[in-house]
């Protein structure tokens, strides 16, 4: 997994609330058996018309946001299905940080498994960064995961909370499975005692 430490990037404003996983990556793109290559279909139905031409009004099609690395979004981002294709598509597009007032649970945890930092901020601060993002390509936002801070293009600094374990894994690009495998002995012990107390499982 790619490490995430600091990021200085263009932020695309997506103020809509309840942006769901069907919008992020519609189901016709879930038929892949690979993790890569989904970036071209990120937000597919909002991004392209029926003839597969780009819809110029859609934020990621605007020249100033084509290279965005950050999305500033409305409440409850990523609601809907558990499809990890959503963060795969986001990461494949080149976006590694999302800023929103809240996320759906599964989406939130899926982000961390794919090198994406989902930041939660209060609505007023998201609103401020949304305004910043609306300025376009010159408004770079700086993210510092170590210090848990965001600096807007005007120099305003916001701090954010993040789970310490998730932060550690993200900063070091650690794979969860490897970490858990180190605790194999505790899983063995649990299985042994459960086979006594709940043998029907």
């Amino acid at each position: 997994m790619n490490k995430f430490t600091t990021l200085s990037g263009i932020a695309a404003p997506m103020p809509l609330i309840n942006i769901d996983t069907d919008m992020i990556i519609p189901k016709q793109f879930l038929k892949t058996i690979k993790r890569s290559g989904l970036g071209v279909n990120l937000f597919d139905e909002m991004r392209y018309d029926d003839d597969r031409n780009e819809i110029p009004d859609f934020v990621l099609n605007k020249p100033q946001y084509r290279d965005a690395q950050i999305i500033v979004a409305g409440d409850n981002f990523g609601c809907g299905s558990s499809r990890e294709h959503a963060p795969w598509a986001i990461a494949d597009f080149g976006i590694t940080c999302i800023i929103a007032p809240s996320y759906a649970d599964i989406f939130y945890s899926n982000c961390f498994k794919n090198g994406i930092l989902p930041i939660v901020l209060p609505q007023e601060q998201v609103d401020a960064l949304m305004k910043d993002a609306e300025k376009g390509a010159n408004a770079r936002i700086e993210i510092d995961l170590e210090n848990q801070s965001i600096t807007s293009s005007d120099g305003d600094v916001f701090t954010f909370e993040v789970d310490s374990f998730k932060k550690h894994c993200l900063m070091n690009g650690l794979d969860d499975i490897g970490l858990t495998m180190e605790k194999a002995a505790s899983i063995d012990t649990f299985e042994e005692s459960a086979s006594q107390s709940r043998p029907w499982v």
Partner: peptide, 9 residues
């Protein structure tokens, strides 16, 4: 529900 990375886990 879980994501695919968690399925693997």
């Amino acid at each position: 529900g879980i994501g695919t990375s968690e399925v693997e886990h």
